[in-house]
Design a protein around this nucleic acid. Structure first.
Lengths: 221, 221
DNA sequence: AAGTTAATTCATAAAATACTTACTTAGACT
DNA sequence: AGTCTAAGTAAGTATTTTATGAATTAACTT
């Protein structure tokens, strides 16, 4: 009796693959439903493995969540590293920072959602994560440098705190992603559509650049 | 045996009070833990009433949640109404809008949290709420008016879309409230402290005004 | 004061859900 | 080939959590 349909009764043994699949499925599940809304059952069904395996590899729902958090927060730092803002002139550097930041959030919805979850849990798990606090200072220092050079050159007209302006860039880039559904309901415009987001990108860049440079030649009216 | 301590064995009968207490306790519970994290048991214990009452008055956890959503979204519109932006000159009107918006979010953490929950649920319940879509247009129209007048007067140097700039104001005002815990963990600065929020307020106002007016006399460097 | 309504309580069902005990078997290693 | 380890399976349990049926009691009406 040749099994033409290999009914996946038994999984081929590959712990690395299984762990990776569980992590990925858990990421989707936690991102979509939050920690409390997530169901371990749905995760294992998505992977197609036995529920017991989740506990075999991760121990508990909570530990799986921590693994997912560490996994997704590990990525962001890597991407931030090679921005090389110091090499560019202030205007170009600032513009690049805004574009990069916008595109990062726009392109990483799972990160955005996991951050939301963590904040819902009051950062309970992220504070335990080692790799997070590392290397945020270089970015802030780079921004301080841009601002200082811009002011020295005279192209920047206002002195902003580096952290404040970075938070602003992030806020302008990501707020509509966090709150798209309520805003869409309130204003009757789909803030999550590709079209609106494209306009949002341009607006974010324009607003930050205008705020930094003050009135310059780009005056449009 | 005289009961000197009326052990609140029996609740005095006051359905309005009971309903109001349940709604309020539910607001706290849902805001803090989200829909799935919220426990009906905790809500009734907070009120000190019998669990059965929650179902008697609201029918289900879900219906209670809807009641809470409608309750908290009803408030915001009322506050927005008497801004009277049209009467002020463009600069003053814009500043007032930013200040009002910032202070509203800063002063209504429960609203911020409930909005987060709703977005987590993809706006599932808010779309059913009648009162939400109403009267957001007047605000956008008012902002359009401010921008048009500002450009005509020459005090505004850039033409922004009214909805885009309003979303920006909201984003700058509220992003750190939504994501305070992760940002605090990442940057090692407590973004939720009163001190930082006070600086944030000034930064938000400065940034929006600078973005709108371009470089003007308020150049500080 | 009796009678009606509905607010409140008591006890418990019913469902969902995270987690376990006990077992099987594939694959690696000698 | 035989054995040992751990990946995977089957089936189940314990607990939490939402929800209900029916009795009880306070307040209001006439």
């Amino acid at each position: 009796m040749t099994k033409t349909t290999p009914q996946k009764k038994t999984r081929s043994r590959d712990p690395e693959r299984t762990k990776a699949q569980l992590t990925e499925a858990a990421l989707s599940e936690f991102a979509d439903h939050g920690f409390h809304g997530a169901r371990v059952d749905r995760i294992t069904r998505a992977v197609g493995c036995n529920p017991r395996l989740l506990y075999h590899y991760f121990g508990s729902k909570e530990k799986l969540y921590v693994a997912v958090i560490e996994h997704i927060f590990a990525d962001i730092r890597a991407q931030e590293r090679d921005l090389e803002l110091a090499r560019l002139e202030p205007l170009a550097a600032m513009r690049r920072l805004v574009e990069f930041t916008y595109d990062f959030f726009d392109g990483n919805p799972l990160f955005v959602k996991m951050a939301r979850n963590e904040n819902m849990l009051e950062g309970k798990f992220i504070v335990q994560t080692e790799a997070v606090r590392t290397s945020s200072q270089p970015l802030i220092d780079a921004i301080s440098g841009i601002i200082a050079r811009g002011l020295a050159d005279g192209v920047f007209k206002h002195r902003y705190d580096a952290l404040q302006i970075y938070i602003s860039i992030v806020a302008l880039s990501a707020y509509h992603l966090n709150n798209g559904h309520t805003l869409t309901a309130i204003f009757g415009v789909d803030l999550l559509s590709p079209e609106w987001r494209q306009e949002r990108r341009a607006h974010t860049i324009a607003m930050v650049m205008n705020a930094v440079t003050g009135g310059d030649s780009s005056c449009k009216s």
